[in-house]
């Protein structure tokens, strides 16, 4: 097991290094000159050259990359925003927790509700409840997030006055306020996860239920509930873990849109603004942080697999 974990961790680290290089190179392709953006209105050619020199923008790309990555590793320094010379590290430091405070509950909520819906659907397969849920799941899978978000705002906030319209309060500042403001963004973010998981769980369950050992159990006269919870569920859930890992990405993608609609000061909004304003260091840093989180989650999923399913461990050797 230790060998397996070590191998996985090393692969992940390698991946992170490649990601950082890729992100950096990608930024070189973005049109626009950071110096010109930084100096803005009325900068002379001289000042621009001066700026480029002082920030080392005239150095070869790989040298710039090396400087960037070593600064991050050894000093935790992501550089400064081109636009307003804010410290990107502290910027991310304030933004990331906000994103997590919306994304993580979204993920948990999505997974729990998704599993629940999937199980209910599978148990009641063919019944009216299953059919209603299947229709809903398909609808959720197909509705762009921004539409769900805004229709929710119009119905829930404007017509029913159940939730505030937008804004954000951090849970550590005022938990009640956070819950009321974050409720809808979290739900919107979770809806897609719910749909994906419900669909997966349902079909996994149906597959397991139709397998021999379940049939045997049924033939032995075990109660349906016992069969479902003791046998079917356990086996149906293993592939679901992969999906949960993949949903991390979904939550981040959702963050870009949701933070824009509700004006939540998270990393998704920071990233979108960064792209729009060509704020290279911000985009680089955001993409790196997000990707590292994704890699970390996948690593956790892999390790979890190793524990749950011994075959995986063996195949790695």
């Amino acid at each position: 097991m230790t060998g397996y974990i070590v191998k996985k961790v090393l692969t992940a680290i390698g991946l992170v290094i490649l990601i950082s290089l890729f992100t950096f190179l990608l930024m070189q392709l973005l049109p626009g000159d950071p110096a010109r953006i930084a100096l803005g209105d009325g900068a002379s050619e001289e000042r621009i050259q001066e700026y480029r020199d002082s920030y080392g923008l005239n150095d070869p790309v790989l040298v710039q990359y090396w400087r960037w990555i070593t600064n991050i590793i050894f000093h935790g320094d992501f550089g400064k925003s081109v636009l307003n010379s804010r410290d990107v590290t502290s910027y991310i430091h304030t933004r990331l927790p906000n994103s997590i405070s919306i994304g993580l509950p979204g993920l948990i909520f999505g997974v729990l509700v998704g599993l629940f819906v999937g199980i209910v659907s599978a148990v009641k397969r063919g019944g009216w409840l299953d059919q209603v849920l299947t229709v809903l799941v398909n609808l959720f899978l197909a509705t762009p997030r921004f539409l769900t978000a805004i229709f929710g705002v119009i119905i829930l906030a404007l017509n029913l006055h159940l939730i505030p319209l937008q804004g954000y309060t951090a849970p550590w500042d005022d938990f009640g306020d956070y819950v009321s403001k974050a409720f809808w963004p979290v739900v919107v973010n979770a809806i897609y996860t719910v749909a994906i998981l419900a669909r997966q769980t349902r079909s996994n369950m149906l597959e397991v239920i139709s397998q021999d050992y379940v049939r045997t159990a049924r033939a032995y006269g075990l109660s349906e509930r016992k069969i479902i919870f003791r046998y079917a569920l356990k086996n149906a859930l293993i592939p679901v873990i992969t999906i949960i890992g993949l949903q991390m990405q979904n939550i981040v993608a959702g963050a870009v849109i949701i933070e824009n609609v509700f004006n939540i000061p998270g990393i998704g909004q920071m990233l979108l603004n960064g792209i729009m304003q060509r704020d290279y260091f911000i985009v680089q840093a955001c993409v790196l942080v997000i990707s590292v989180m994704t890699v970390f989650c996948n690593l956790m999923v892999d390790i979890a697999y190793g524990f749950i399913d011994p075959r995986v461990r063996r195949s790695m050797r």
Partner: peptide, 8 residues
Amino acid sequence: TDALVAQA
């Protein structure tokens, strides 16, 4: 950021 939300 969203004008529609502002209107609401």
